[in-house]
């Protein structure tokens, strides 16, 4: 994990410098860095030879997240996906959350079509899961049943995660691929259009998901974890 992280950091710097020197568009450089940033997670997961049950949990949660996107595909921007990825992170830890998010993005794009946005979505959804898992590990999000204030708190967190992190990452993709001359005004325009048209509805969907099904879903995940000893939260590194 440490070696792969260091290597990826180094490579990112090389790409950044080389891209600048050769006058490549930001699009290429930034996408390369986004892809590289996910490599350490993949390396860490693969290098510890995941057990059958870990594989199954990831596949199941990933599929549920994808189905949630498919079910609501008719209503634009209403995607419970991020909410479900966060719940996964809370229940099974940051790494599981991250991988569920990235793979859910990848798999859902096998259905909706791959594009330049795929790596960015993977990173954005993955980070949402990682963050939720990290906060749960730090004890800031309870893993058990939520009281009403906790329910509201976590849902608001979900809202903020989308508005402040997931949305802007996706908008950055737009900035780098679609904007010809990256100026502060152009970036600002993209971010504000993204905020108003996509990120706020998306954030509301995430809020609703966490508020309505967060606690019951966690209860269900916990039950299965206890019954079958699935992916003990403590056992997951990071």
């Amino acid at each position: 994990m440490i070696w792969s992280t260091a290597l990826c950091l180094l490579l990112s710097v090389v790409i950044l410098v080389a891209g600048d020197a050769l006058g490549f568009r930001y699009c290429l450089t930034s996408t390369a860095i986004v892809v590289l940033s996910m490599v350490p997670f993949a390396v860490s997961f693969e290098s510890r030879r995941p057990q059958a049950r870990e594989i199954v949990v990831l596949a199941v949660m990933c599929a549920i997240a994808v189905v949630s996107r498919v079910v609501f595909a008719g209503i634009p921007h209403v995607k419970p996906l991020v909410g479900i990825v966060m719940i996964t992170g809370i229940a099974f830890g940051g790494q599981a959350g991250f991988l569920t998010g990235t793979l859910a993005a990848l798999v859902s794009n096998f259905i909706f079509g791959q594009g330049p946005w795929t790596p960015w979505q993977m990173l954005a959804y993955g980070l949402a899961g990682l963050l939720a898992g990290g906060l749960a590990r730090a004890g800031l999000i309870p893993r058990g049943a939520w009281s009403m204030p906790q329910r509201i708190g976590v849902s608001v967190l979900g809202f903020l995660v989308v508005v402040c992190m997931v949305g802007p990452i996706l908008d950055t993709c737009t900035v780098f691929t679609m904007v010809s001359t990256v100026t502060p005004e152009a970036a600002l325009a993209v971010y504000s259009i993204g905020f108003a048209t996509a990120n706020v509805p998306h954030a509301i969907a995430t809020f609703a998901t966490l508020f309505l099904v967060g606690s019951p879903m966690l209860a269900k995940l916990n039950r299965v974890r206890v019954k079958y000893g699935f992916m003990e939260a403590g056992k997951m590194p990071k």
């Binding site: 059958a52 049950r53 594989i55 949990v57 199941v60 189905v67 209503i75 209403v78 099904v213 699935f230």
Partner: peptide, 27 residues
């Protein structure tokens, strides 16, 4: 939307229950 979400959450239980069988079948 609320109905759909609660169905989704209900699906988690048996999805993981089935997952146990899948994991056994893999091992």
């Amino acid at each position: 939307a609320k109905d759909a979400l609660s169905l989704l959450s209900a699906m988690v239980s048996w999805a993981l229950e089935d997952g146990v069988v899948t994991a056994d079948s893999m091992r």
